[in-house]
């Protein structure tokens, strides 16, 4: 890559970063997300209580500073603060890993289709169309029923379901980039196919991929919570926000905080991820972002 090109690209990213900083909701969301992640990682270590430890003196107790039960305790007397944050770790982990899986499949599939073009492209996209019509939630549940519920299966199953849109986006980008001047110029100047893909096609598809990946994370977190809520996702001793919400819904009449606190954490995370995704879209694709 020539010096000017590298410079130009850096400038584009700098400009995108500046635009993101001007998008107040998105920038604040980024802060909120970093905060939640940090608290989830460090919080449990700061509490005197352990994940499964039962405080027999305060069962289904409301939030208080005295017993160091900042979020109160659940119906079994377990500290909800530690459980919510540990659950957050699992939810965020599932969000990131399953998105990474979907990213991997989607990018490979989409880039191949877009790069091959023609008949192969048509066939591969037809397969995506067919898969789109399927109610995937049910298939993931099916897999969980047949192959047992494990975290790895959750990662793979959700990732394997969420790649379709990613494949479409990458394929569209690859198709449009393929026919632009600078790729032809690179080819004429003797660059190999691999170099073209690495230096031109991947950097140019990066923007929309980042945006969509950001918007996939909340979908995946929601998906996992849904499974866990039904008792078909994360299993004891692990917990996740979906598990906590399900437990909270059981005891909400006597201890509403067991439902409301984990649910708020989930909702705030989803909201922040959605705002961040919107902000990134505006920052990375100024055409759709600015008003006319």
């Amino acid at each position: 890559m020539s010096f000017e090109e590298t410079q130009g690209m850096q400038k584009n990213w700098q400009r995108a970063w500046l635009r993101l900083r001007h998008h107040r909701a998105a920038f604040a969301s980024l802060g909120v997300l970093l905060g939640i992640t940090l608290v989830c990682l460090l919080g449990p270590a700061l509490s005197p209580w352990a994940l499964d430890e039962i405080d027999w003196e305060s069962i289904a107790a409301p939030p208080s500073w005295e017993g160091a039960h900042y979020f109160g305790t659940d119906a079994l007397g377990r500290d909800l603060f530690v459980r919510s944050l540990s659950g957050g770790r699992i939810s965020l982990l599932v969000g990131l890993v399953a998105t990474a899986v979907s990213l991997l499949i989607g990018v490979l599939y989409g880039a191949t289709a877009g790069y091959l073009g023609g008949r192969w492209d048509a066939l591969m996209m037809r397969v995506v169309d067919v898969l789109y019509a399927l109610p995937f939630m049910f298939f993931v549940i099916l897999l969980m029923v047949f192959f047992g519920r494990s975290l790895v299966l959750i990662f793979v199953a959700i990732g394997a379901v969420e790649w379709l849109t990613m494949a479409r986006i990458v394929r569209g980008q690859a198709l449009s980039v393929r026919h632009r001047g600078f790729v032809d110029a690179a080819r004429l100047s003797g660059a190999s196919e691999f170099q073209i893909i690495r230096r031109h096609i991947i950097p140019n598809t990066l923007g929309p991929v980042i945006v969509y990946a950001t918007l996939t994370v909340p979908q995946v977190i929601l998906f996992e919570s849904f499974l866990s809520f039904l008792g078909l996702g994360v299993q004891e001793p692990l917990t996740s926000w979906g598990v906590l919400i399900a437990e909270g819904a059981q005891s909400m009449e006597s201890a509403p905080w067991t439902l409301l606190l984990p649910a708020s954490l989930l909702a705030v995370t989803l909201l922040a991820l959605n705002f961040l995704g919107d902000g990134l879209r505006d920052a990375l694709d100024p055409r759709t972002g600015t008003p006319r």
Binding site: P218, L222, S225, F226, F229, G242, I245, A246, G248, A249, M252, E253, P256, L259, L260, A263, L266, A267, L270, L271, N274
Partner: peptide, 22 residues
Amino acid sequence: AMLGIVIPNFVMAPVLGLIFGV
């Protein structure tokens, strides 16, 4: 509308039950 999107229905349902039922 944004709230409707980020609050999943398995949260909304018990919360509605809590408010209007309990």
